[in-house]
């Protein structure tokens, strides 16, 4: 039996004067014990809502959820002692020092005064927070706040850790630091559910990935399985002369394993390849022998956008289809119309 089990989670909001919005639309999820599962999806896909339901913050409209066999909806008070949550916004008290923040959380978990202080100090050392130990959090960077927030989620050594977009908004160096910390936790056997917008992050940290869109899981699997499903890496060719487009498409079709796509009036061509370096070598040799001049050539790893395009037919960064059109969006659409 999976450690976290969610079935048919549905959450419907009805904004005033608008049609209902399905933040979750029958989401199913299983997270085995001592594994890391990533919920991968764009903004508004339902990642945060899923975490809120599982961490007792929000009641779903329908569906069920269990953690360690305990019904989350019926017994939130039995769930709270066994979970740790670190949210998208570092939920630390700016006016308290790093130590006071951690000590407060420990006391609210009912660790007792002495044990709370010992644990706070352990976490300060473990997360390299010495600098923020005795100074109010107010003066510190986003990366430091996230580390304190994450440390707060680990005060009781929870059985399950929920990380909602743990690196969104962090600079690359802080992101790498956060990945190290999470990898360390996982090696100790903590069950983790993390949400992210970045395939690379899910790739680095997760054993298994659930891709979600419009409140539903649309694909599941390991990072390799997902990448394989969209045909491994990409080879991209940019031509000097768009007149060479038809010939190049033929070459790409021969070396790639998908139908080549074209953009920019036939100048930019892309194809999937399971062994991209070999494909790129072959393509370049072939194009060279035909004296086709290139502006650019290279390969890249699939992005979340590629996964999404393949799975849903729409881009991950675009607004999801059933989002309520805002005044601003309507105005922008009008403008667009009048321009054309």
């Amino acid at each position: 039996m999976a450690f976290i089990e969610a079935a048919g989670l549905t959450k419907t909001y009805t904004p005033k004067g608008a049609s209902p919005v399905h933040a979750l639309d029958g989401l199913d999820l299983e997270v085995p014990q001592s594994t890391v599962t990533a919920l991968l999806g764009p903004n508004g896909a339902g990642k945060t809502t899923t975490v809120k339901v599982l961490t007792t913050l929000t009641q779903p409209t329908a569906g069920s959820a269990r953690i360690d066999g305990i019904d989350v909806l019926a017994h939130p008070e039995r769930i709270r002692p066994i979970i740790g949550v670190s949210g998208q916004y570092a939920a630390v008290d700016e006016n308290l020092t790093g130590f006071e923040n951690l000590d407060m959380v420990g006391r609210l978990y009912h660790l007792g005064a002495a044990q709370s202080r010992v644990r706070a100090q352990e976490l300060i050392t473990l997360f390299d927070l010495e600098e923020a130990k005795n100074r109010p959090v107010k003066g510190f960077s986003g990366g430091m706040r996230r580390r304190i927030d994450l440390a707060g989620a680990l005060v009781t050594r929870p059985k399950v850790l929920f990380l909602d977009e743990p690196t969104t908004g962090l600079d690359p160096r802080s992101r790498l630091g956060m990945w190290d910390i999470i990898t360390g936790l996982v090696s100790q056997g903590t069950t983790v559910l993390l949400t992210t917008q970045y395939l690379e992050e899910a790739d680095q940290l997760a054993d298994s990935i659930s891709v979600i869109d419009d409140g539903r899981v649309i694909a599941e699997g390991t990072s390799d399985e997902l990448k394989a499903s969209i045909g491994g890496q990409r080879v991209e060719i940019t031509l000097v002369d768009p007149g060479d487009s038809a010939t190049t498409v033929e070459v790409l079709r021969r070396f790639g394993n998908s139908e080549p796509t074209t953009a920019a009036e036939g100048r930019e061509l892309t194809v999937n390849a399971s062994d991209a370096p070999a494909a790129l070598q072959g393509i370049l040799a072939e194009l060279g022998s035909r004296s086709i001049r290139l502006f650019d050539a290279g390969m890249r790893r699939p992005t979340l956008d590629d996964v999404f395009l393949r799975l849903t037919g729409h881009s991950a960064t675009a607004e999801t289809s059933d989002a309520v059109p805002t005044k601003k969006m309507k105005r922008a659409a009008k403008k667009e119309k009048s321009r054309s």
């Binding site: 709270r80 949550v85 949210g87 939920a91």
Partner: peptide, 17 residues
């Protein structure tokens, strides 16, 4: 707004505290 209430609400503390 800061998400601190979310953090408190996931702790096993008294809801009136």
């Amino acid at each position: 707004k800061d998400g601190i209430i979310d953090r408190f609400r996931t702790l096993p503390m008294s809801p009136s505290a």
